[in-house]
Nucleic acid binder design. Sequence first.
DNA 1: TCAACAAAGAGAGCACCGCTCTTGCTTTAG
DNA 2: CTAAAGCAAGAGCGGTGCTCTCTTTGTTGA
Lengths: 255, 255
Amino acid sequence: MSSNPTHGARARARIEVTAAIKDEARRQLAAEGAAKLSLRAVARELGMVSSAVYRYFPSRDDLLTALIIDAYNSLGEAAEATHDAVAEAGPVQRWESVCAAVRTWALTHPHEYALIYGSPVPGYSAPQTTVEAAGRVGFLLIAIVRDAHQGLGVAKPRLTAELRPEAVRMAADLAPDLPPEVVATLVAAWAQLFGLVGFEVFGQFNRIVEDREPFFRHAVAELAHTVGLVYPQQGRAAKARQGTRSTGKGSSSGS
Amino acid sequence: MSSNPTHGARARARIEVTAAIKDEARRQLAAEGAAKLSLRAVARELGMVSSAVYRYFPSRDDLLTALIIDAYNSLGEAAEATHDAVAEAGPVQRWESVCAAVRTWALTHPHEYALIYGSPVPGYSAPQTTVEAAGRVGFLLIAIVRDAHQGLGVAKPRLTAELRPEAVRMAADLAPDLPPEVVATLVAAWAQLFGLVGFEVFGQFNRIVEDREPFFRHAVAELAHTVGLVYPQQGRAAKARQGTRSTGKGSSSGS
DNA sequence: TCAACAAAGAGAGCACCGCTCTTGCTTTAG
DNA sequence: CTAAAGCAAGAGCGGTGCTCTCTTTGTTGA
């Protein structure tokens, strides 16, 4: 038994060294990018020989996979923390907060963002371990829309009826309690959010968008409309009402 | 003079060899991805020695830059060709056609798509030559919205008034004739389009979206709504009308 | 307690990479 | 015709991912 013991000096050392390798690798990732990350350099910096690292990560790709999972979890935690801070606010504010958290994290950790949302290896299919970590932001967005939907604060998304969105099949276990067209619109908004963030992080807005932050807020607010978090009739009055009734949380009170 | 002559046997040979190098590099790119692309392998395949390639491309990055520009132009041409084929149709159909062309090209050339819209090198600022090639799809989208706007077929995008979109500064020369909030919404839609395409190409929809094509059409139709190509009152009837009367410039007037 | 075992480090080595430099040869320009 | 410039070839440098062997060192069961 105990094929994977957590006690014993050797086991302790293993998880420590593993963490040290990942830390140094993350340092090099942030400094130079994933392309320049080298097992030999990590080993050199840690004072060990390169072949020793292979006792912990059987290949460079395995190291990268570990960093990918960590990055997904880091992003997920940042988003969840921000969401928890405004958990009592209205769905629109929660939506905008989570989106802003994703953007902030991405701008703060551009190389890690590139690692998880940039170009993967061609045939690379994410291992199952990655999937749940990758879904944390998505689950957050689903939860916001679900809450709004079960409460009274949601409008069905404006539909392009000719597309028969009931033909848009999504994974059945994504959100079984939500109408499929809502899920489809939500998943699209999810992808579009990362389109906005990715374009900014990767410099695609360089000579195009001057004031990135208000632009992002504008686009995110429109996304909130699209997923049905705001009734078309709702203007600034409704938004202000949502902001104030948050028990003092989002008391930015606006200009 | 004639520091860059197009005549002469040597000059001819140079552009031929340059093209051969790019072709072989593109082959390896499509087969193995940008990470595996190797100058030495290209040279080996072409029967020359590796140092000879450096007469044509001073570094591996320069070769990649050339491939990037070609990829941008390839995508741009595909989009423009598709757009030309439906130039007489209504703005919605033109919008959807261009978006579909982008998606199709991306799915057909995943590695080239990853090259231009995946993770760039950290400090990499696109050389000026790249910029115009990169803007072709965006200009197409601008043209569609401009035509609709100058005609009578466009609705001002639904605004989130509390965000004061006039504070969203865009590059002044992007579309001086369009209202800034329209430009902002359009640029956001542009980024969101590539968010949708990127997520599909990079496998982010793998266990999430089953029927990718109708899902994409659905999302793109919603984007058309968001940028104001369709009046909220317009339902399937208006869409059908646009589809049938393909000879009349976007004078959908209607409603 | 002690011997058998397995985990881990050290080092050499292989094949490949990007890139530089030198050496001859050929095309071009004056 | 001669000098300059363009080009192919080869050797070589430092770096990479990864494998193999050898040795040391905790762990563990009889």
